[in-house]
Design a binder for these strands. Structure first.
Length: 696
DNA sequence: GATCCTCGAGTTCT
DNA sequence: CTCGAGGATC
């Protein structure tokens, strides 16, 4: 580098100063200088960097304005999963939580750290040698999206950690959100410029963070609060969560000032009540409060259940409610012909969105709540997502409001409607004659988890079915550009995309194909079991279903006998698939029409004809491997561990022999562990087992 | 026969 | 997410 030293030093000094002011302003809410002075410093740095472009580094404050758009986000695998919290909706559930914690720790009056639960987006920030290097969204908890350029534009996220004791590597977890007042100002601006306004701060924050063009993100008033760490190296972690948050604050990260240490259920409830009362005066939206066991050692001891920590819980505020009018009760027809009554509502803003529809599930539900067209009802968003009619306000019922009746013929096709004795739902008997069912069947066939045909959405399916262009899934494979031409929103480009997507979906694995057929009772899981059992489409089609039911019963009886005697069990046939489901599949395959469609699909190469495995052998990375479990595993029950192993074709047996491949040992293992060591059989702990299951 | 668990189906809005 | 049905288990 031929840069003269003084210039470099000058740039460094300016950056440090600007960052300090950023922190004073955005993190501590206590600016030291006025805006004009800040702007002056900023421009000076910009000037300097323009003259010496080689000085520009991604961690310069000037780079917070964003950079060139990305083609797409990269995937980001979290080092440790970003789990979600269990929810409590009532005081009872909080009491139960505290009780579990006390029992787990064998103590009373546990100390917790309580803080508001932000209604924003969870993200993770990685700092190496104190420098912000990478940030990602939570995603599904295991894999998120790398949104580093966007996060760089958020001024309350420090580009450098400060102070003594900056760790070599640290992963900070927290929430990106928008203050209400910033949100309103931004929306006003958007509207003035004729752009679309966001519906609530949360959506605005989410939309802003997922911009591929970080220059747009830079113009959105996003904020950040840190509340946990995922990983730290090269520094001693504190002993409590409260100290951890203080530490993060010391490193220059914004941490919520409303956090507080409290003790016992009483302390928790007091904090909850206080936050509920102060909710409106906080600058940001919260949807509840979070309680975490304060001692980190105790947190570690409590561990995790399935997908959530046992040491923390989110205590949610009651779902927001609003009253509105039921304009009508209409009936929708689903894929299986199920008739679902839906309340069409006068649009009402509740829980951050405008709600216009709410499902009423079935006739029993309508009767139980006694909802009628014209009624005024209380609406809320159950679990903060799906709107539901909570109750009717009877005093507001208009005179002459009539009870809802399920139609006796299908509103879509006029076929007779039936309700089976054993079921709560009414069904249209029209089958694929009913256009609604045909449309749903096609949408299901094309859906992501089935054949995954991109671009085949509702609009297109409506046109294809209404126009008589496609009648069955097989028809999709005969679609050419010619047939698509002339449809709405189907110019050449879209049309060729659809044709390409259909081509791409061909040779689908058997399980997906069976699922795609949309056989009643056959979802993703059952489809997998069937595919694994038969191994090929030909065998699936030729199956002797009566014999299968008989064989299944025989194995079950035999296993009942053996269980009583504590003998090794036979491998169950079609685990999770009982007589009802088998009957349903057999019925489906008996219909000549269905056979015909399947043959046509076969002919167009929709499904892979490859044999999955040699007959009788279960599929999976662990197939042929045998496992023995001993002792108590920290998180998995015996059955869970067994299921996980079997899911990948492994076998769990009772005793260790030379034929055993692995022994999985937990706490207080029995003699089996000793025997395993004797025979030199590899021993895994739970983590090792999970790694093996995941890695394969 | 009772009970627990898992899976399937339907649903909302952006 | 929630409800209901089917399956496994005791």
């Amino acid at each position: 580098m031929a840069v003269p030293r003084p210039v470099e030093a000058q740039a460094r000094k300016l950056r440090a100063e600007i960052e300090r002011h950023n922190r004073q302003y955005y993190v501590l809410d206590a600016p030291l200088v006025n805006d004009a002075e800040y702007d002056r410093l900023f421009r000076e740095l910009q000037e300097l960097e323009r003259e010496h472009p080689e000085l520009v580094s991604p961690d310069s404050p000037t780079q917070r304005v964003g950079g060139a758009p990305l083609p797409q986000f990269e995937q980001f695998a979290h080092h440790t999963p970003m789990l979600s919290l269990n929810n409590a909706f009532s005081a009872d559930e909080v009491v139960a939580f505290d009780k579990r914690v006390c029992e787990g720790l064998k103590t009373v009056n546990v100390e917790y750290l309580a803080e508001p639960k932000f209604d924003g987006l969870a993200i993770s920030l990685t700092y190496e040698q104190g420098k912000f290097t990478q940030g990602a969204t939570r995603g599904d908890g295991y894999t998120g999206e790398d949104v580093t350029p966007n996060l760089r534009t958020i001024k309350s996220i420090p580009l450098h950690l400060q102070g003594a004791g900056v760790p070599r590597l640290i992963e900070i977890r927290g929430e990106v959100l928008m203050y209400r007042r910033d949100f309103e100002r931004m929306n006003e601006r958007q509207r003035e410029q004729g752009e679309k306004a966001f519906v609530n701060p949360r959506n605005a924050a989410a939309g802003s963070l997922r911009q591929l063009d970080s220059r747009i993100t830079a113009r959105r008033p996003l904020r950040f609060f840190a509340y946990a760490i995922g990983l730290v190296e090269g520094a001693a972690a504190p002993a409590t969560h409260a100290e951890l948050e203080n530490w993060m604050e010391g490193l220059g990260l914004p941490v919520c000032p409303e956090r507080r240490r409290v003790s016992g259920v009483q302390g928790l409830m007091q904090f909850y009540d206080e936050m509920a009362a102060r909710r409106e005066e906080l600058p940001y939206d919260i949807d509840g409060v979070v309680y975490k066991v304060n001692s980190l050692a105790a947190q570690a001891r409590l561990g995790y259940v399935a997908r959530a920590p046992r040491f923390a819980i989110a205590h949610k505020f009651p779902a927001e409610e609003a009253s509105t009018e039921v304009q009508a009760i209409e009936v929708q027809v689903g894929r299986t012909g199920a008739l679902t009554p839906v309340a069409r509502l006068k649009p009402v803003f509740v829980g951050g969105v405008t709600v216009t529809n709410a499902t009423l599930h079935n006739l029993d539900q309508v009767r139980a709540k006694d909802v009628r067209a014209g009624d005024t009802v209380i609406v809320r968003r159950a679990g903060d997502v799906i709107p539901e009619v909570a109750r009717v306000l009877p005093e507001k019922r208009p005179r002459g409001a009539v009870e809802f009746q399920m139609p006796s013929v299908c509103p879509e096709c006029g076929s007779k409607v039936e309700r089976l004795e054993s079921e709560a739902v009414h069904r249209c008997t029209g089958g694929l004659f009913c256009p609604a069912q045909r449309k749903q069947a096609l949408l299901h066939f094309a859906s992501r988890r089935a054949m995954d045909i991109e671009g085949l959405g509702e609009k297109l399916v409506d046109q294809l079915v209404d126009g008589g262009i496609v009648h069955t899934p097989a028809g999709l494979y005969r679609l050419g550009l010619a047939k698509l031409a002339g449809l709405e929103r189907m110019a050449e480009k879209s049309a060729s995309n659809v044709v390409a997507a259909i081509e791409k979906s061909k040779r689908a694995p058997l399980a997906r194909f069976i699922f795609a057929l949309g056989i009643y009772h056959v979802g993703e899981e059952v489809a997998k079991v069937l595919a694994r059992h038969f191994g090929s489409l030909a065998k699936f089609l030729d199956a002797d279903w009566d014999a299968l039911i008989a064989e299944k019963e025989r194995v079950q009886k035999e296993n009942t006998r053996r269980r009583n005697k504590d003998e090794t069990l036979l491998a169950p046939i079609l685990h999770g698939v009982g007589p009802e489901i088998i009957q349903s599949v057999a019925n489906f395959l008996r219909q000549p029409h269905n056979r015909e469609v399947i043959e046509q699909l076969r002919a167009s190469g929709a499904v892979s004809e490859e044999e999955i495995l040699p007959p009788g052998e279960p599929e999976g990375a662990l197939s042929g491997k045998s496992f023995v479990l001993t002792g108590t595993l920290p998180d998995l029950s015996r059955d869970e561990a067994k299921a996980l192993i079997e899911a990948q074709g492994g076998k769990v047996v009772g005793s260790v022999s030379t034929k055993t491949d692995y022994v999985v040992a937990g706490a207080e293992p029995g003699s089996k562990l000793a025997r395993a060591k004797e025979l030199g059989i590899p021993v895994l702990d739970e983590a090792g087992l999970l790694r093996m299951l995941k890695g394969s």
